[in-house]
């Protein structure tokens, strides 16, 4: 049994919605924009308080994002709340043109990202969105790992002048951030120290990385665990330091192994400090039906699976013949 299963798990949508209400109380320009997604985005409280500030465009994602860009042009601070799979895939050109290229102050909140809708099948999985969003210029991409980081990321997105994609889940995660944790856009944080291997993760995978580090410690492998909530702009210094200090990097993501966090990390590693890497994620397939937890385990991202990948990478590093 992994340690996480003994801890209380929390759906971060609650922290997201509470923080949005706090922001809306303080700033009358904050509006929520949704596509018939009041319930799935936990916006009932917001709607009750400010029915006129909840702009529901119905099931129309292109219009959803275009309207948000127009609201921002008119001086409002729109938070678009929609299922990540539809928000990013259906409205990608609006995200590129109306939001990022036009530099409108829109916050895109992709709810139930990754395989949170695991049982609903691959149409509802959002495992390409890191790739799609991070290659668009002028778009900040953030995937918080627990309730506290979610609260701080929502506040940071509101304070940031410019487009942000917040990638949120509904899958329960334990509270893992240390007391006094301070989130900053573009800054990664070390949650476990080690010199043998680095495990870089975000979102729903960070707590699994910590569990894997505990398993590895029992066999004498010290893993550095880095929570990299901001996929763009990337904390390149943290990645280069991880490569230099530990000589091996495992990345984890609830996303395809192509184009996401692992790819972003690899781009930095090959340019600055080449070391062996293992990129864990959805292995280039449409995932089968199953709970998100079951799917993550199946794709090698249980604590045991992550530990096995790290162990193998440490072995590769140590047996590498010097040139």
């Amino acid at each position: 049994m992994s340690p996480a299963t003994q801890r209380a798990l929390h759906d971060c949508r609650g922290a997201f919605a509470e923080t949005l209400v706090e922001l809306a109380e303080a700033n009358p320009d904050v509006v929520a924009v949704c596509n018939d997604s009041v319930g799935s985005s936990k916006l009932e409280g917001f709607k009750e308080r400010w029915p006129e500030r909840l702009v529901n465009v119905g099931i129309a994602e292109q219009n959803l994002v275009g309207v948000a860009a127009g609201l921002a042009n008119g001086g409002l601070l729109p938070f678009v709340c929609a299922a990540a799979c539809f928000l990013t895939a259906r409205a990608l050109e609006q995200i590129k043109t109306d939001v990022a290229y036009s530099d409108t102050n829109v916050k895109l909140c992709g709810i139930s990202s990754g395989m949170a809708y695991g049982e609903l099948g691959a149409t509802h999985h959002s495992t390409e969105d890191f790739g799609w969003t991070r290659v668009i210029p002028n778009l900040t991409v953030i995937a918080p790992a627990d309730r506290e980081e979610t609260r701080q990321a929502v506040r940071a997105a509101a304070a940031h002048r410019g487009p942000v994609y917040l990638r949120l889940s509904r899958m329960g995660v334990p509270d893992i951030m240390p007391d006094g944790y301070r989130f900053a856009i573009g800054r990664a944080v070390r949650l476990h120290e080690g010199r043998d291997v680095s495990i870089i993760a975000n979102g729903t995978l960070t707590h699994r990385a910590l569990d894997a580090a505990e398993l590895l410690a029992r066999e004498g492998i010290q893993a550095r665990v880095i929570n990299m909530a901001t996929v763009k702009p990337l904390d390149e210094d943290a990645i280069v330091a991880a490569a230099r200090d530990t000589g091996a990097i495992v990345t984890l993501e609830e996303h395809q192994v192509h184009g996401g966090l692992g790819s972003a990390v690899a781009e930095v590693v090959v340019s600055h400090e080449p070391v062996p890497m293992t990129i864990l994620g959805v292995p280039g397939i449409f995932a089968p039906t199953g709970s998100a937890s079951w799917l993550l385990d199946r794709f090698g991202m249980s604590a045991q699976g992550i530990a096995a990948s790290a162990r193998e990478l440490v072995h590769r590093k140590r047996t590498k013949v010097a040139p």
Binding site: N63, G66, V67, A69, G70, L71, A72, G75, E93, S102
Partner: peptide
Amino acid sequence: ETNTGPLGHGLPVAVGMAKAA
């Protein structure tokens, strides 16, 4: 006011502007 080129982008953005006013 907003970048256009791909077609079908202007009216949704304009709806958002009018709603903001």
